[in-house]
Design a protein around this nucleic acid. Structure first.
Lengths: 208, 208
DNA sequence: CCGGATCCGTAACGATACTG
DNA sequence: CAGTATCGTTACGGATCCGG
């Protein structure tokens, strides 16, 4: 049975033919932070049937967007090029990120995407350093240099400043809804290391 | 009945909750080139049932992404902010744009999106002018200034150069697979007006 | 236990017919 | 023209089962 296609000679339609089905871009999101095993994927995608995950992985391998080495799945180069699209959609969707709803899943690793879409290159021209966020025992790093950003879900670099907080606090900070002083005073936020870099980070990462 | 949701506290998941369903982003693509009537939409989205189009339009109005004035549908400001995401996905998908397959739909207005994703701001710093493409009787304009681009599916500006060709020819040109001289000699391409701006356009619009 | 495959009920989709 | 109604088909979602 041929796969369902929009049958349009249009770049957007071609993209959606490949990654427009339910769950697919969330699966890509998971793999953007590094190779994952089947079990890890199913844990971060509750509600997705195991059969469906297997089918998606098979299709994505067929499209050469995902590779499988026997133990874990990873994005191919072409698959990783979806990052721009994922980040653009997440930037748009971030406006709809309200208070976490009861029962909603949350993973610290998703903040790697948040760092990308919240990063304001134009405000970061003279910022240099490695920032490590510690969110519920998960560490996420951002390396800023020359107005560019690199991120990692592992401990890839030696951090200049370490910022500990939960997801809600970080979101409120990046939106300017919460003052760092207050957050630190209340114990919701802890900063150690280069405080100047921390202050720069508040300027450089801006949700809307 | 509550609408199906990913139930994740994640910006990407929120975006996909709103516009991740089948046909939705293609519908947004149609509205990105200006307000459209119901009939125009259904004509550019063959395969989509009329009931489904009506349901999508209703949902999008509920999410305040689309407005309806009685005769035509248009994007709200928030809806128009999806352009970045649509362009990013189209840029990624453009690599999969091969020869048009028999039976595939094609619309000249989709080239407005193509102009956006193919535009190389860094190569356009000193390019100024209005380019009009005439593709199968449809006119698409691009206005370039200071490394930025504005596009239009209507005749919004007075063109400095007019480029006539079909979609395949333009795609081949933008990919560098076809030389302008040959295209003009064969009659597949006609250029009138500022030829210098035409040459600049070949540099500035680059598919991959 | 991991990595699926199989089965089956439900919801979404797609085509067509019909209506104000 | 702009939808609604209906209905068959496909995709999804949950549970269970199975081989390594």
């Amino acid at each position: 049975m041929a796969k369902r296609s929009y049958q349009q000679h249009c770049a957007l339609a071609k993209a959606l033919d490949l990654v427009g089905e339910r769950w697919t871009l969330l699966l890509v999101r998971e793999l953007l932070t590094g190779p994952k095993r089947y079990k890890q994927l199913i844990e971060n995608l509750p509600g997705m049937g195991t059969n469906l995950l297997a089918a998606r992985l098979r299709d994505l391998q067929g499209a050469e967007l995902v590779a499988h080495d026997g133990t874990s799945y990873s994005l191919t180069e072409r698959g990783a090029e979806l990052e721009e699209s994922v980040v653009a959609l997440a930037r748009w969707g971030s406006a709809a990120l309200a208070e976490p709803i009861d029962g909603e899943l949350w993973r610290a690793s998703w903040n790697v995407i948040a760092l990308k879409y919240a990063f304001r290159s134009d405000l970061a021209k003279d910022v240099v350093g490695v920032i490590e966020y510690r969110i519920d025992d998960t560490r996420v790093q951002a390396r800023i240099k020359n107005g560019t950003i690199a991120t990692s879900a592992e401990e890839s670099w030696k951090p200049d400043v370490v910022i500990e907080a939960n997801g809600e606090t970080l979101l409120a900070l990046s939106r300017g809804e919460l003052k760092p002083k207050e957050a630190e005073a209340s114990g919701a936020l802890a900063v150690s290391g280069d405080r100047r870099l921390f202050r720069s980070s508040l300027r450089v990462f801006r949700a809307k």
